[in-house]
Design a protein around this nucleic acid. Sequence first.
RNA 1: GCGCGUGUAGCUCAGAUGGUUAGAGCGCCACAUUGACAUUGUGGAGGUCCCAGGUUCGAUUCCUGGCACGCGCACCA
Length: 741
Amino acid sequence: MDEKFLKPYSPKDVEKNIYQLWEKSGYFTPENLVKDKIIPENAPKFSIVMPPPNVTGVLHMGHALMLTIEDIIVRYKRMQGFKTLWLPGTDHAAIATQSKVEKEISKKEGKSRYDLGREELLKRVNQFAKESHDTIISQTKIMGSSADWSREAFTLDETRNRAVKTIFKKMYDDGLIYRGHRIVNWDPKGQTTISDDEIVYKEEKATWYTFKYGPFEIGTTRPETKFGDKYVVMHPDDQRYAKYKNGDTFELEWINGKTKATVVKDGVMDMETGTGVMTITPWHSAVDFDLAERYGLDKEQIIDKNGRMLPHTGEFAGMKIADARLKIVEKLREKGLLIKEEPYTLNLATAERTGGIIEPQIMNQWFVSVNKEFVLPESKIDGIKSGSKTTLKEIMRKVVSNGQIKIIPDYFEKTYFHWIDNLRDWCISRQIWYGHRIPVWYKDDKVFCDTEAPKEEGPASNNTDKTASGKWLQDEDTLDTWFSSGLWTFSTLGWPEKTKDLEVYHPTDLLETGYEILFFWIARMIMMTGYALGDIPFKTVYLHGTVRDGQGRKMSKSLGNGIDPIDVSEKYGADAGRMSLIYGTAAGTDSKISEDKIRGYKFFCNKLWNIARFVVSSGGIINENSSTNLIEADKIILDDLQKVVVDITKQIDDYRLHLAAENAYQYVWHTFADKIIEEAKPRLKSPDQVTVESTKFMLGKVLVTCLKLLHPFTPFVSEEIWQTMYGGSKGLLMVQKWPAK
RNA sequence: GCGCGUGUAGCUCAGAUGGUUAGAGCGCCACAUUGACAUUGUGGAGGUCCCAGGUUCGAUUCCUGGCACGCGCACCA
């Protein structure tokens, strides 16, 4: 017997070597399985793209859960003989990455990005991204991920850039991407726009002020925006204001003296809220903007991009919003125009990445229209014919409602539809430098969109001299990071080239990710794939929950309650970490993890190790294809094992991985170890040779089957046992046939 | 306001399409054990399956309503 078996299982000494063994085999690349005749050329494919981790830091438990679930499925499918591709990559994460680097530079050197300039900042960000990438990838390997590294992609590499530019141009030509003065979410801290989905609402105590505004009383939480207000809006059916007619005007005393206001009657008003009358500030409110657009009302900017009052606000010019608010309330109080102040709780809109307080602003930005009709030339979407007109919204809705894409757990489909119902045009331009630059050039009043810079007069893409005329200048902005992520399932396969990969592996079979990016990412992939290919990006979506600490709190740096998956692998082994993440974790539900739980699965790995030691030392190494005359007891054991195999197979097929893991765990420990082995001990000492041989064969058969069943869940220990048992003579456990028929 | 989810043992959680005595891990109690097992085994205590109605021969499971907690979206004049 190999003397390794004489010691307890030590994952630390084993895992790195095992991973190298797998990597060296080349079998993470499906074509090599064909080449070595492990699977036939015409084997069915199974493909899945890895949700690319951001290159902003290190691997956390959320990533670890994602990698575990995906690796379980991938290893299972590979063993079942599928041409299995798990395509990995990383995400440049535009704002997240740039703001992280900016923070560092500001802390260490006291400089802003404007001090450094575009080129220097990008150099620094790229450097950081590269280091961060290397860390993340090596950590991904520590978790045992059997991904095809030969196909690794990055959302900001050359191939992906070509895909981004190609689809941008196509959408621009179809009128789906347009530039316009619209109300956007401006983050004064990050100095960029963000999409609706990048807003995080925080409850904040505020004051609800009621002011006298001519003959009316108006309520507001934001007096500082009220300078330019010259329209009062009320519901047409509101009897309190029946004597005022649409278009009536009146003079009134306001913040900086006399002003004139006009009455607007509109059904958007809620008669129950406040006094049922409001004034509008179209430049700094989405609802007011819509009203102003509808009636052609004047719009005036009050607050600048830094969150300070503009010069025309007189004595308040240059003040920050919060200061100006108090000062203006004071002034209105002195004028006798303040009627009352009441405490009020509002949901403050903040930027996800910088924490800046969002100030709606009217700006000239790029948008994706979700409601505009276009012709889809080739459609594989049920319910949308090739060559017929459709919208991006319709594509998003249809592929889920018609069942082409199945979401697990299914109740997220309702959340998804709810989101689509409320979806507005997507603002995709960002005023940051790290990302895909918008492929649009301007010269005087001409606009040029293409994948390459305009040829005439030479490229001017790096020319930042805005005053230059007669030269083509590229748009300064970059694209929302989710624009490139939205192409991930097909950009990673080589689109826009018509590659073999695209033909073989698209659409992918499964997309596994956390439910918190259902809108950010999944919906965008569905939209972009539907548009670019007239197809679905994946057939099944599996959503996992958030991994929390032992007390159910989110893991965060400030709480210091994070458990680092790499520390876990070091201390208990990656297998133990994987088991503790998957065990008791149903799709879509949050899970808790603690060191106690992880330790339990380290014990399990050691138990398996000892089982193997016992079986091997009892002579239970078998040639799987050989047969022996089995005694009745052993026949029953092997029949029962078949039932377990069938159950586990079905559970994995149904993506009920937690049940499969539990099933395997219970069988190995409490059936195989506690019952089968205990009952086999006296039989091994039987004078009857038939009994002894049958028992040995049975033990070996059960062990080998268990190793195969456990391999997707605990790949390292199962492979290590396999290698130690057979001394490498039977290849890799990773590519053995799954035991079920 | 609209929508979604959760509530099962001391703790953390499984229990798909209703059906014997409701399960696991950890913890707790008793006993055994130099054992293939540093990390073992056997047995045990512990449950109004959130509450109230309803459907049913039968409900932890399905329906209605309520309570508690969590989440998403919207509003935020």
